Simulated assay, not measured.
Amino acid sequence: MSNPVYLALDLPQLDAAKALCEQVKGHIGGVKLGLEFFCAHGHHGVHEIAHCGLPIFLDLKLHDIPNTVAGAMQSIHVLEPAIVTIHASGGRAMMEDAKAAAGEDCKVVAVTMLTSLDERDLERTGVGGTPHDHVMRLADLAQDAGLDGIVCSGQEIASVHDRWKDGFFVVPGLRPGGKATADQKRVVTPRRARDDGASVLVIGRPISRADDPLAAAKQIEETL
């Protein structure tokens, strides 16, 4: 992959999302469309963004019983996504069925721990151990289930990459300055994540909310 940056294009207005994609498409490698975008614009919105000519990453974080998740995966075949996310916490059977139902050229990756969570949040939900421990457990489960890879923060990517050499790893919550902002708690810089083994770098607000999105995208690209 020549440019690992996928722009998180979760804008409420479809026209604005299309315009931003066209503006920066020469300096990103793909587009991530999340739950907010999909709920607002559905299949039509995905088809419209696909006109930009970039790979589409559907970050839907599917999490339900195995049969339901498999059905959801089949329903998005027509969108031809390059990547789709599911939740590793859905269990091995759910992950196996999701992968079996995915399109031939679609990578299925499991979300381990959201970058908006930290150790205290884990404790409150009854999960013991550190974020690192939790991510590694779920990464092992995803690998055993036959998935292509996982989603994790840049703080765990080096350890996961050491254990899963041929995995496909998506890292969100990236900040060019490396400092936590807004609802993101466990962040690193795009350069560090890439050096540690990230396959895809998901970057949203540092580009989409920049005064000059094109300049911001170019600047991030230059650091890689």
Rank of each mutant, 00 (worst) to 15 (best):
R163L: 09
I203P: 14
V202Q: 05
L20C: 01
D196I: 07
Q155M: 07
D195S: 15
A182L: 15
A210H: 13
C39Y: 12
D121Y: 05
S159Q: 08
T189E: 11
T189W: 06
H47S: 09
A40M: 11
D148P: 03
L141K: 05
V78L: 13
S153D: 07
A72S: 03
P12V: 08
E156P: 08
V31W: 01
A210R: 09
D148G: 01
D140T: 08
R124H: 10
V151P: 03
G204M: 08
R92S: 12
G177Q: 10
V202A: 07
N67Y: 08
A88N: 08
Y6A: 01
H161G: 06
K18L: 10
A40H: 09
L33S: 03
F37A: 01
R209I: 09
V111Q: 14
A102C: 13
L117A: 12
L79C: 04
T130S: 14
T68R: 05
C152Y: 03
I28L: 09
F169P: 05
L138T: 06
V187L: 14
D162R: 13
L62T: 02
V135I: 06
C39N: 11
M136A: 07
S208V: 12
T223R: 12
G204H: 06
L35Q: 04
L58H: 00
V5I: 15
L62K: 03
E119G: 04
I56K: 01
Q219D: 14
K99Y: 10
P4E: 10
S159L: 08
V109S: 12
A101N: 09
T189V: 15
R137Y: 06
D105E: 14
H43F: 13
A142Q: 00
H132N: 10
P190V: 13
G173E: 06
A16E: 14
G45M: 03
G197P: 14
R186V: 15
E222N: 13
T181R: 15
M1A: 11
P131Y: 02
T189D: 12
N3Y: 01
D195T: 15
M95H: 04
D97A: 15
R120W: 00
R124Q: 11
A93R: 11
P206T: 11
V135H: 00
F168Q: 00
D195E: 15
G103T: 14
H47I: 07
A102K: 07
D183T: 15
Q155S: 08
T68W: 01
V170K: 01
D105S: 14
D59G: 02
Q74N: 10
A50C: 11
G71N: 13
A216C: 14
L33P: 02
G146L: 01
A8V: 00
V46Q: 02
L33M: 04
G42N: 02
S208I: 12
G197C: 13
R120S: 03
D196N: 15
A93E: 13
G146V: 01
I220F: 09
N67R: 11
G29R: 01
V127N: 10
V109Q: 04
G173V: 06
L35M: 10
V109G: 12
Q23H: 03
G126P: 15
L147V: 12
E156R: 04
S153A: 08
S2P: 15
S75I: 06
L117Y: 11
L117G: 09
A17P: 05
K18N: 04
K61G: 02
A215Q: 12
A216P: 14
A17D: 02
A210N: 12
R209W: 08
D148I: 00
S2V: 15
